[in-house]
Design a protein around this nucleic acid. Structure first.
Lengths: 200, 200
DNA sequence: ATAGATAATCAACAAGTGTTCATTAAATAC
DNA sequence: GTATTTAATGAACACTTGTTGATTATCTAT
């Protein structure tokens, strides 16, 4: 209880953790996440196995910390359209989504790696949770159709956008982020009364 | 090469597999999926561990087979609105979604168990894949806005609906499937030009 | 009912897991 | 700079994992 915050600032910790993260990412380049053992990780990181267990319980925990950094980037991308504006109510999920597409495009290698090592599913649910929380928080106070359950609506749109991103990732980013934004606009603008979604 | 189909019909296999599935589901009632070991499973199933490895590689594989049954049910629910109809083009994702809500409601205990044991994320991606495939297949030939990328659109709506379902599950089914259907209709009918999704 | 096929079992194996403890090394705080 | 705290190490531990080979039990096919 002397530091600015009560953060763990011991250089040994950050160095060990960083080595473990680097080792895991390195191993994920060539091995399925499931096949990577704790022993693999500590050998690659050149650390004692006890060091791993001092900081983590599962190898998934390392990935979680890596993902946290990426998510921090995602959130700031998501929030950016809301910055420096008084007309908060007029801001849109659409423009947020566009920023998200740009974020994913920037972190392309990371997201590809998640797919390559079959570690995407854990990430997706985390992304959903975070985006849902942010959206609900940022849009609280904004009124729309009162019959609509705000949480269900948020979950609907957040998952929808992540669905597009998943498709994008799985197709190895063959589109650019502008195309993704255009598509989102087209999909949102196409009336539900059209053929595909016509009601009976 | 003598049976009706070349299915594995050996009673020993089906019995062993069933015992392993039952054991896993039973263990998931009280333990996080991650914490369940192969040893746990074979002890509970009262089988030799070699028997497990004869049929599966990971415990996840058992869950996959359980999930396959549920997914078969889901697909038939999904397809039901298309049955006995020539006006295929006019059928809607909406009515399919309504059937899906009913399916989830029926399999409530299963989906709750997936959440309870933290095994949902693997299931979700599988559900997405299956629904996407079915939707693309069933709707091929149907034309809508030609500018729209059909795969991205499908992924958008499939994930959106699964997003609603996820929210529903996580709130322990506090709504009924009719409410879910109504909400879907409201969300789809609410114009994108409204406050929340107004374009800048 | 019997023969042939193969699933299930048992025992044993090296390797990985998760934990503990005493020792060494490196950090922070004064 | 020195004292104090604490992270990292190395060795050892019982246990789990994934695999193998020989044996027994059970199935299918005839």
């Amino acid at each position: 209880m002397s530091n600015k915050q009560n953060l763990p600032i011991d250089r040994r910790i950050t160095k060990s953790k960083q080595a473990l993260m680097d080792a895991l990412l390195s191993l994920m380049q060539t091995k399925a996440f499931k096949k990577i053992t704790v022993t693999d990780i500590v050998k690659t990181a050149n650390l004692n196995r006890g060091t791993f267990y001092k900081h983590y319980e599962y190898k998934e925990d390392i990935l979680d910390e890596i993902v946290d950094d990426v998510i921090a980037d995602l959130i700031s991308s998501y929030r950016e359209p809301y910055k420096n504006t008084e007309t908060f109510e007029l801001m849109t999920l659409t423009s947020s989504a566009i920023k998200i597409f740009e974020h994913v495009s920037h972190k392309k290698e990371f997201y590809s790696l998640m797919v390559k090592s079959n570690a995407l599913s854990g990430l997706q649910s985390k992304l959903c949770d975070v985006l849902k929380e942010v959206t609900l928080k940022d849009l609280k106070g904004v009124q729309s159709n009162p019959k609509i359950n705000r949480e269900l609506q948020t979950s609907f749109y957040v998952h929808a956008i992540l669905g597009m991103i998943t498709e994008w990732i799985n197709h190895e980013f063959k589109y650019d982020s502008n195309y993704m934004s255009e598509q989102l606009l087209e999909i949102l603008q196409s009336r539900q009364g059209d053929v595909v979604f016509k009601l009976t």
